[in-house]
Amino acid sequence: MAAQERESAPRLTQLTRPGEVTSALRGNLVDCWVTVSNAGGAVIPYGFPLPPVTARQVGPVLDQVVQELHPQRCRMLVATVEGELAGWLLLRRDQHPLVAHCGVVNHVQTHPRFRRLGIGAALMRRVRDVARDDMGLERLGLGARAGLGLEVFYRRLGWLEVGRWPGALRVAPGDDRDEILMSLTL
């Protein structure tokens, strides 16, 4: 893909039901997750081992994520540039009445081919609108891995660091990182 094509603004699509994820999109999501994980991205590998990972390991975990899609509980935002998957994230709401006004953003990913083009920022701005306007949420939270400067990225987008869980993330034997807890009031 030519550099000028990648400069196009991303197209952001919201998915709210499992049937909206086509087999082609599923393949692209798996590829993105594998590529981001193996490139050292801070995507927490729920359900599969630490990198290196394969599509065979990531696929079933993605399938489980897709099955959770529901308009009120779980939505996926997908960013494409010129028809190619550039990034994605997940927005979840817990149904328990004590926290039903809050959502959690998970699996924020930008494919390495599309880094530094504003894809992550576009996804994070859009998730704020979706959470507030479409799901009626009042607050969002997320966890970020320390040591990568992610807290700076999120702060620029209005998020506040509200705490740290020291050593909560074991990236590799002997490499424990803090989980940075971030919050955004909508």
Rank of each mutant, 00 (worst) to 15 (best):
T80A: 14
T80F: 03
V81E: 02
V81S: 06
E82A: 15
E82F: 00
E82T: 06
E82L: 04
G83F: 09
G83H: 08
E84H: 05
L85W: 03
L85I: 07
A86D: 08
G87A: 04
L90F: 01
R92I: 09
R93I: 07
Q95L: 15
H96Q: 11
H96E: 03
P97G: 03
P97H: 02
L98F: 08
L98C: 12
L98T: 12
V99R: 11
C102H: 12
V104R: 10
V104G: 04
N106H: 15
V108G: 03
V108S: 02
Q109S: 15
T110L: 09
R116G: 00
R116Q: 10
R116C: 06
A121D: 02
A121L: 06
M124I: 02
R125K: 14
R125W: 08
V127G: 06
V127S: 03
A131G: 15
R132K: 13
D133Q: 14
D134A: 14
M135L: 12
M135I: 06
G136C: 10
G136N: 09
L137P: 10
L137R: 07
E138W: 08
L140W: 07
L142C: 10
L142D: 04
L142T: 04
G143A: 14
G143D: 13
R145S: 02
A146F: 02
G147E: 05
G147C: 10
G147A: 12
L150A: 09
L150C: 03
L150F: 01
E151M: 05
V152H: 07
R155T: 12
R155D: 12
L157N: 00
W159P: 06
L160M: 11
L160I: 00
V162Q: 05
G163Q: 09
W165G: 04
A168S: 14
L169A: 10
A172K: 07
P173K: 07
